[in-house]
């Protein structure tokens, strides 16, 4: 098995692991961590595909690699916004629950 296939398959597993955490973990922070794992799986898959596209004397296809840098920065921005929101929610309500407030009649 080539190294890029190995990492591509790993990436698929990382996506699955992240997805499971995103569904099963109740706390928003845990969901956020799981989201980051899932995102990194997508990134590694892209990276493996880039390595697969090595040609013209370059060790890998540079276009996906450049896009990955953008994507990592965007994912960081997403994490920053979510963390700020979560911390603010805890300050405001002393709870991090995502569930609806019980219906008020």
């Amino acid at each position: 098995m080539t190294i890029e296939t190995l990492f591509a398959l790993t990436a698929c597993a990382l996506v699955g692991i992240g997805l499971y955490g995103l569904i099963a973990q109740p706390h928003p922070l845990r969901k956020l961590v799981a989201f980051n794992i899932m995102g990194s799986g997508v990134f590694v898959l892209f990276g493996a595909l880039a390595k697969r596209g090595a040609a013209a004397g370059l060790p890998a296809d540079p276009v996906p690699q450049a896009l990955l840098i953008t994507a990592i920065v965007v994912a960081f921005a997403a994490t920053a916004v979510t963390v700020a929101l979560l911390v603010r929610l805890i300050e405001a309500t002393d709870s991090a629950s995502l569930a609806d407030a019980p219906p008020r009649e």
């Binding site: 969901k31 956020l32 989201f35 898959l45 892209f46 595909l49 979510t82 929610l89 309500t93």
Partner: peptide
């Protein structure tokens, strides 16, 4: 508090949607 909770729910679910979208785009590039 309620709107903060709604916003948190929104961003987490929307991020999940974006990552699936990006995964599809990555597969198409591959």
């Amino acid at each position: 508090g309620e709107t903060l909770r709604a916003a948190l729910r929104y961003i987490l679910f929307a991020l999940c949607g974006s990552v699936l979208y990006l995964l599809g785009a990555v597969l198409l590039y591959g």
